[in-house]
C-alpha cells in the first residue's frame, strides 16, 4: 500500500499552490487555472507521457518532466511556460503534422480537432521540416466507424479507453518507431473484430479525425468525452 496522500505546497510559475501528494503537476495546475497544453492526456485514462506537449521544467531535475505523469512533491518549483518549452511544443506539433497526412480542410474533424487547435495554440503556421507523406491505411470495415491512419497521432487514447474503461482491449499498438500503428485485435479489420463491442468510446476520445463515425462529412465530427468525466467522478467518489 502506498502512503496516504499528504497536503503540501509547491510553486507553479511563481504561484504558491496547495496540493495533495497523489496529484500530478497537471491536476494541480488545472485546479488553479494554470494552463498546460496536453494532447495524449485525457482525464480518466492512465497518463502515459507520450506526446511530450505537457513537458514542464522542474527545479532540481535536469530533465523536463511530463506534467500529466509526474506527481507533485513538497516545495516543488514548476515552470510551465518558457521560450524553450514553447519551441519544443511547436516542434512536437510539427513532428505530428510531418509524420501523418493531416489535411484539415477536408477532415471530418476540421474545427473539432485537438491537433489543429494545438497547432494554433503553439503558433505553428507552417512546417520547417519536410513532410514524410507516409502511405497509410484507411479501415472502413466497421459498420459504424472509420479508422484513418493518415490522421492518427499515436496518442493511444483509443487503446487506453478500450482497455481501461470498456474492458475490451480491442486496440493496441503494432510496429516500432515511425512504423508504429494502432490496430484492432491482431491487426485484423475492425469490422471483423471479435472483441470490439462497437461502444464507440475510442471514436469519442480520439483527438483527431483518425477515428470517426461513418457518414459524417468534413467538419461534422464532434467528439463527446463526457462519459469519462462521469467515470472519473464515480471513481473519485469511491476513493
Amino acid at each position: 500500500m502506498s502512503a496516504p496522500a499528504r497536503v503540501i505546497t509547491l510553486h507553479i510559475d511563481d504561484r504558491e499552490v496547495g496540493a495533495h501528494t497523489d496529484q500530478t503537476i497537471l491536476d494541480v495546475a488545472r485546479e488553479n487555472g494554470i494552463f498546460i497544453p496536453t494532447l495524449c492526456h485525457l482525464k480518466g485514462l492512465t497518463p502515459i507521457g507520450a506526446c511530450r506537449i505537457c513537458l514542464v521544467e522542474v527545479a532540481g531535475f535536469n530533465k523536463l518532466l511530463p506534467a500529466c505523469a509526474t506527481k507533485v512533491t513538497d516545495g516543488m518549483r514548476v515552470v510551465t511556460h518558457s521560450e524553450r518549452l514553447d519551441r519544443y511544443r511547436r516542434r512536437v506539433v510539427e513532428f505530428l503534422f510531418a509524420s501523418g497526412n493531416h489535411v484539415c480542410s477536408v477532415c471530418v474533424s476540421n474545427n473539432n480537432c485537438e491537433l489543429q487547435s494545438m497547432a494554433q495554440l503553439t503558433g505553428m503556421t507552417h512546417l520547417t521540416m519536410p513532410y514524410r507523406y507516409p502511405r497509410l491505411r484507411v479501415d472502413a470495415s466497421h459498420e459504424r466507424f472509420v479508422q484513418d491512419d493518415n490522421r492518427c497521432i499515436l496518442c493511444q487514447r483509443c487503446v487506453r479507453v478500450c482497455d481501461e474503461i470498456e474492458g475490451a482491449h480491442t486496440w493496441d499498438v503494432m510496429g516500432r518507431g515511425i512504423e508504429a500503428r494502432v490496430i484492432t485485435d491482431l491487426n485484423e479489420p475492425w469490422g471483423e473484430s471479435s472483441t470490439c463491442t462497437s461502444c464507440g468510446k475510442c471514436v469519442h476520445v480520439c483527438p483527431t479525425g483518425a477515428l470517426s463515425i461513418k457518414g459524417t462529412a468534413a467538419a461534422e465530427m464532434k467528439k463527446k468525452t463526457h462519459f469519462l468525466a462521469q467515470y472519473w467522478t464515480l471513481k473519485e467518489d469511491r476513493s
Partner: peptide, 17 residues
C-alpha cells in the same frame, strides 16, 4: 504564401503518398 495549399500543399498534396 496564402492559404493551406501554398503553406502545406493541402489537397494537392493528398496524392503524395
Amino acid at each position: 504564401a496564402l492559404g493551406d495549399c501554398a503553406v502545406t500543399s493541402n489537397v494537392p498534396g493528398m496524392r503524395n503518398p
